[in-house]
């Protein structure tokens, strides 16, 4: 009850009671989520991207509800605490236009990182480690499984291509994004997109967006993904440096980690199942790479025409 009392004292919220301790509370104004932060700078970053990306996109991120004195967070013991709206109803992927506009708003906010530079400078973009993959793959390579041989060969080519682009674009700022960018975080309140962000340390680069696109593809189709990119491009240009940086991240063979994770040679049956999952995972990501590169090619062709 101590926390509830504190919240009642600090916030303009009434009729508070626990729904799912310690994260979800019921209030007279609906369900609210409580987030706990042990690190102040990370929290400040999360406050900022939520505030920035709420501007005019027609979607609403789960911004921090302000206290009676207008603060976005309160100190609670040795942690910080924030209160957010909460709902369970999924938004789905039908409204491509709204999603596209929201992602564009996120990206616009993510590339304008003038504040908190010291904090953000400490964050390094994730690096793909082919040697680590090769070590993981070593014990399976002797069997010469066709899917592995092909995928590793292709991974090397894609890695080279991706590095070449990144190298060319090295002077351009990478966006800083919420790590848990996901279709599942898109919820519906009235008929608008309510986006529930995460709490993790942010990620520099387009990897969160790549994961989002894989998820999008799983739930929709290549043509829907292309429409999504077209919608994003209307509000955040993908036809210049930032588009190339996104392409570089999509081409980077990140899925090789996940593919290798599927393998298990403890029995023949498990090995066969693992290889099937390996192939599925590889193909799924291949569709992503193909769809995204096709979209960029189509864009280029249109410009050339």
């Amino acid at each position: 009850m101590e926390l509830i009392n504190t919240l009642e004292k600090e916030y303009e919220l009434y009729g508070m009671r626990w729904k799912e301790k310690p994260h979800i509370i019921m209030t007279d104004y609906g369900e609210k989520r409580i987030r706990y932060w042990s690190e102040n700078e990370g929290m400040r970053w999360h406050i900022r991207w939520r505030d920035e990306s709420s501007k005019g996109s027609g979607a609403v991120p789960d911004r921090m509800i302000r206290t009676k004195s207008g603060e976005p967070a309160i100190k609670y013991g040795n942690r910080w605490l924030t209160v957010h709206d909460h709902t369970e109803t999924l938004y789905g992927c039908e409204d491509v236009e709204r999603w596209g506009q929201f992602i564009a708003t996120l990206l616009n906010a993510a590339v304008s990182v003038k504040n908190q530079e010291v904090f953000l400078k400490q964050i390094e973009p994730p690096v793909f480690d082919l040697n680590h993959c090769m070590t993981l793959a070593q014990k399976y390579l002797e069997a010469n499984f066709q899917c592995m041989v092909t995928s590793i060969k292709e991974s090397k080519q894609r890695l080279e291509f991706s590095r070449a682009i990144k190298n060319r674009m090295r002077n351009h700022a990478l966006p800083v994004l919420d790590k848990e960018l996901s279709v599942k975080n898109g919820k519906k309140i009235f008929h608008f997109l309510f986006y529930q962000g995460g709490e993790s340390l942010p990620v520099k680069g387009y990897l969160p967006l790549r994961k989002f696109m894989v998820e999008w593809l799983e739930q929709t189709s290549p043509s829907s993904l292309k429409r999504l990119l077209t919608e994003v491009n209307k509000h955040f240009s993908l036809e210049q440096e930032q588009g190339l940086l996104l392409l570089a991240e999509v081409v980077m063979p990140w899925e090789l980690y996940d593919c290798l994770d599927q393998l298990d040679n403890s029995s023949l049956e498990r090995m066969i199942d693992g290889l099937k999952r390996y192939e599925d995972c590889w193909e799924k990501n291949r569709t992503l790479v193909k769809t995204v590169t096709e979209w960029f090619d189509e864009k280029r062709r249109k410009v050339a025409l």
């Binding site: 104004y29 609906g30 027609g58 609403v60 709206d85 309140i189 009235f190 008929h191 608008f192």
Partner: peptide, 14 residues
């Protein structure tokens, strides 16, 4: 009406 103004009034918990 409720749907049109819902996204606005949501900001006020109304």
């Amino acid at each position: 009406d409720t749907l049109n103004y819902g996204p606005v009034l949501f900001h006020y918990d109304l």
